[in-house]
Nucleic acid binder design. Structure first.
Lengths: 180, 180
DNA sequence: AGAGGGATGCGTCAATTTGCCGCAGCCCGC
DNA sequence: GCGGGCTGCGGCAAATTGACGCATCCCTCT
């Protein structure tokens, strides 16, 4: 198992649910972690302590997390920043990396992937990183759930956002959550 | 806007049609340009002359253009590299930029966009993100690309990891990169 | 109350997309 | 030179999707 790091991982994400879930999961995994719901809070936390790992959501309601990257790096030059977003696009990925992000991941993403992103290269602990990638079906299920929640359970709206047929979405939802 | 540059733009793309078309178009636009169909040729050309702008295709049949980026930069440190690919994915985009690419564009792309990509060095252009969430098809594509890369392009292994039929994977890959 | 406008759940049927062969060509280690 | 794994592709039956239609519901505006 990955050993506890002396410095906490800072999670900056304006979604309270996701944020606390992530912080809790990281903690349970043995990584100190703290969350910030806004960019300002994030910067404040980063300034107040040594900080070498940040998980940053791109959509901090309204303001873009993109702008936060150089600001964080100005405060903590050696900090590694993993950008996370539910609205991934190649353009923002390129921009994020240019601004100094270490990695750019699209939600839904597993804890594994986030932790691996910080390490970026060597994966010394063959603990449970051996797990297989999500099957496409499973990934699809996760994504659908996310967008569905984002649209307050509105199936029609979700189908539109996902550019898929409403009937098809209905049928998929009717089926069991697909196994991994 | 784009004035004639003393140094030619180097186009590295293994598709002869696209390559010569691009070279011709660039030339007609007043930009000196020359093409290379393989990575080796590209490196050779870059070594033989000053070169500050390269258009690089990611799929140089077989070998990945990704590896070429650091090699080009080793020869021409100040060179700007715009990566171009018909099979764009976030994972390769991130990797390309980390390796030093200036921009990463998905085909089909207009000449305008390529030329603009060379100029946009100052990365303070107003980012227009706020896209919609990935469509499930798009998400699937991204995921497949990631796992495929993880397995060094091995289709059979990828299909196994993804628990999907090899034939199906083949068919999906044969199709265009899915739209938005 | 009554008239939209949107969401939902479902049935049907045709068009696609899978799953599952099989085969031939390649490349590589033994 | 052989066995074994990978690749591309043809073909076909089975499963899934796309496109419609229809009967509720639930709101909101008039």
């Amino acid at each position: 198992m990955s050993q506890t790091s002396p410095m906490p991982i800072l999670v900056i994400d304006d979604d309270p649910t996701f944020n606390s879930l992530l912080v809790r999961t990281l903690t349970r995994r043995g990584h100190a972690a703290c969350g910030a719901l806004t960019g300002e809070d994030g910067l404040r936390l980063a300034a107040g302590q040594a900080c070498e790992r940040v998980v940053l959501d791109l959509n901090l309601d309204g303001s873009s997390g993109l702008a936060l990257i150089p600001e964080l790096l100005a405060i903590q030059p050696d900090c590694r920043i993993v950008v996370l977003t539910g609205y991934a696009s190649i353009a923002t990925a390129v921009e994020a990396v240019k601004r100094g992000a270490t990695q750019y991941l699209a939600k839904p993403v597993e804890i594994e992937a986030i932790l691996a992103a910080f390490d970026d290269a060597p994966l010394d602990n063959p603990d449970e990183l051996a797990d297989e990638p999500l099957s496409v079906d499973r990934l699809e299920w996760e994504h659908i759930q996310r967008i569905l929640a984002e649209h307050a359970g509105n199936i029609s709206a979700t189908a539109r956002a996902l550019k898929m047929h409403r009937r098809t979405l209905q049928r998929k939802l009717a089926k069991r959550p697909v196994r991994g």
